[in-house]
Structure formats: C-alpha cells, structure tokens
C-alpha cells in the first residue's frame, strides 16, 4: 500500500535517476524515502552503483553501459530504470519505520565556540541563553546526511531562531554546531560553511577509521544537552 501517491521521477544526468516526493521537509515523507532506500540497499539491481536518500527524494546512480547490455535495444537505460522503479514502488509494501535510535549529543554553547551567538541574539532580539534553550530544549530528526562526510541535516529548528544562510561561507571548525533556516547541523570536519555557529560538540561526528565512520544515520533522533567548557575539555580527551 503506497501512502504517498504523488511522486515524480527524473534524470539526474545520464547515469542517475531521482525519485522525488515533492519539495518539502516532512517526517512521513522522509520515512518513505528511507524505507525505499533500505529496500534498494538490501536488494540492489544489476547495474546499480549508489544511492542517495535526501529530505524528500531518493537518487539512484547506475551504470548505463552495463544496463544497456541486458535490456532491449529499443530502450534507453533511463527509460528502463524509470519503468522498473515505478513497478517497484507500486508493488512495494511500505513498512512502519523501526523505532529510531536516540543519540544524546553534548554541546558547549560557550561563546568561545559559539562564534555567531551574540550576533543572532542581536538580530533576533533575544537573550543568548534563550537561543541556547530553544536549541537544546527539543529533539531533532536526522533527515539526511550530506554535503560533507557525516554531516547531519537536523530538523525542525524553532522558527524564533531561524536565520538565513550567511552570504559568504567562512571556515568552520570540526564539531561546530550550527543553524540555518529551520535546520541545525554539526560540521564533522573543518570546512567552509555558511551556517551560523552556536556551539561545539566534543564528539567525533565523523571518524574515517571507525567501522561506521558516521556517528549518525538518516532517521536517527538527536537530543542535545549543554555542557560547560571544563566538561567539553574532559570529553575531548
């Protein structure tokens, strides 16, 4: 039984296809995306190369040359995949999502790390402490991992502290906790970034040498809790 009737399928170049459930951030839709992602991950078809689940879409990379060898000559690999994906979705038995894994993540909101906190306070006309409370006072869903290795896109941030992205990206340190729009995220590596920094976690969000390099996966639930600078340093050891 397919609960979300409206979707579109389009090409993402000549070696990938996107199944799109609409330009929307919605928990249910993200559940469908992840359900479909897991199904393809467990039962990859011949010629499938990679999968990228996002907020409301799943993209499938494929090898067009390999596929063209096994399909009818009158068909392109794109037409073939599109047809197969539609068949797959129509037959797909949607499952209730498994209970989410809850991750508790310590964050030091000290201005030593929270380099954009006072500017946000000024713009939003809020106390810094209010912003911090609004940030850790709720749970978040990991909608997707993208942009950088292990970077989690978390939603949904309180509207009161929603900020547009910075006009120009700046260098951001690994572990920085940041906000943009109705989203919050954690920079796993040092990188240029356009989000506003409101804290830092001592946890390794991405560790290439770990068996599972990314601490978080799409579908997880994140709870932030505040720590002071001393606790931060102790946890960093």
């Amino acid at each position: 039984m397919f609960p979300q009737k409206s979707y579109s399928i389009f090409s993402l170049g000549d070696a990938a296809i996107t199944i799109d459930f609409g330009n929307i951030i919605n928990e249910k839709i993200n559940d469908y995306v992840l359900d479909l992602f897991h199904a393809f991950q467990q039962r990859p078809f011949s010629g499938m190369v990679d999968l990228i689940p996002a907020y409301s879409s799943l993209s499938i990379y494929y090898d067009p040359v390999k596929l063209r060898k096994s399909i009818s000559h009158s068909e392109t690999a794109f037409e073939y995949i599109k047809k197969e994906v539609v068949k797959f979705i129509e037959k797909f038995s949607w499952e209730k999502p498994l209970p989410a894994k809850v991750m508790k993540i310590p964050v030091c909101y000290d201005e030593y790390y929270a380099t954009d906190l006072s500017r946000i306070a000024e713009i939003k006309n809020l106390e810094k402490q209010e912003i911090v409370h609004l940030h850790y006072g709720q749970t978040y869903r990991v909608y997707m991992i993208g942009f950088l290795p292990g970077f989690p896109y978390l939603g949904t941030l309180d509207e009161k502290i929603a900020m547009p992205r910075k006009p120009e990206p700046q260098m951001v340190k690994a572990g920085s906790v940041a906000i943009a729009g109705r989203q919050t995220g954690i920079y796993p590596l040092e990188s240029p970034g356009g989000w506003h920094i409101i804290g830092k976690t001592p946890l390794k969000i991405f560790d290439a040498n770990r068996e599972s390099p990314s601490l978080l996966s799409a579908g997880d639930v994140v709870e932030f809790y505040p720590i002071d600078k001393n606790e931060f340093l102790n946890l960093s050891l």
Binding site: L12, G13, A15, A16, T18, D20, N23, I24, I25, I52, A54, Y55, S56, S57, S59, Y61, M144, G146, F147, Y153, G181
Partner: peptide, 13 residues
C-alpha cells in the same frame, strides 16, 4: 526563487 530542499547532485551537474 523557490528554495529547494537539499537533494542529490552528480559529477557533471
């Protein structure tokens, strides 16, 4: 000028 929620891109996009 609709904002697009993040989704996949590829080599050559």
């Amino acid at each position: 000028n609709e904002e697009i929620v993040s989704s996949a891109v590829s080599f050559g996009t």
